[in-house]
C-alpha cells in the first residue's frame, strides 16, 4: 500500500528486465515440466484396441471410410482406386492425401504376387 508522500511502482516496473525474463523462463520451465509429466504417464489405454486387433485380425486403422481402398489401404489392390471404370478418376477427397499402399511401391524384397 502506498504511504502518503511515497509512490510504489507496479511490480513489472520494479523488476529489472533480466528478472522479468527470469519469470518468463520460469513459465517455460513449468511448461517443460508439464511435457515431462505427460510423457511419464501413459494416459491412453490400448487394451481393448489390441485385443480387437489380435482376436479379429484387424489390419487397418478406421481413419477414412469413404471407400474400401481408403478404409483398408494396406489391402488395396492395383484396381481399387479406379474400380468403377478403367478411366474413372478417384473422387474422394481423402484419396488425394493418401499414397499408394506399401506393397505396391518398389520394395527391397521380391514381390510375391
Amino acid at each position: 500500500m502506498n504511504r502518503p508522500g511515497h509512490f510504489r511502482r507496479p511490480l513489472h516496473a520494479r523488476l529489472r528486465p533480466v528478472q522479468f525474463l527470469g519469470l518468463v523462463l520460469g513459465l517455460f520451465l513449468l511448461g517443460g515440466v508439464l511435457i515431462v509429466i505427460d510423457l511419464a504417464r501413459s494416459r491412453v489405454s490400448r487394451t481393448e484396441a489390441l485385443e480387437l486387433t489380435r482376436t479379429l485380425g484387424l489390419t487397418d486403422l478406421a481413419l477414412s471410410t469413404e471407400a474400401r481402398y481408403l478404409r483398408h489401404p494396406s489391402l488395396a489392390d492395383l484396381h481399387s482406386a479406379f474400380q468403377d471404370h478403367p478411366a474413372s478418376l478417384d473422387h474422394f477427397p481423402a484419396a488425394a492425401a493418401i499414397g499408394p499402399p506399401g506393397h505396391l511401391r518398389p520394395a527391397p524384397h521380391a514381390r510375391l504376387d
Binding site: V44, E48, A49, L52, T53, D60, A62, L63, T65, R71
Partner: peptide, 9 residues
C-alpha cells in the same frame, strides 16, 4: 479408446 480400429465395426 479403441475407436482408431473399431469405430466403424
Amino acid at each position: 479408446e479403441s475407436s482408431l480400429v473399431s469405430t466403424d465395426l
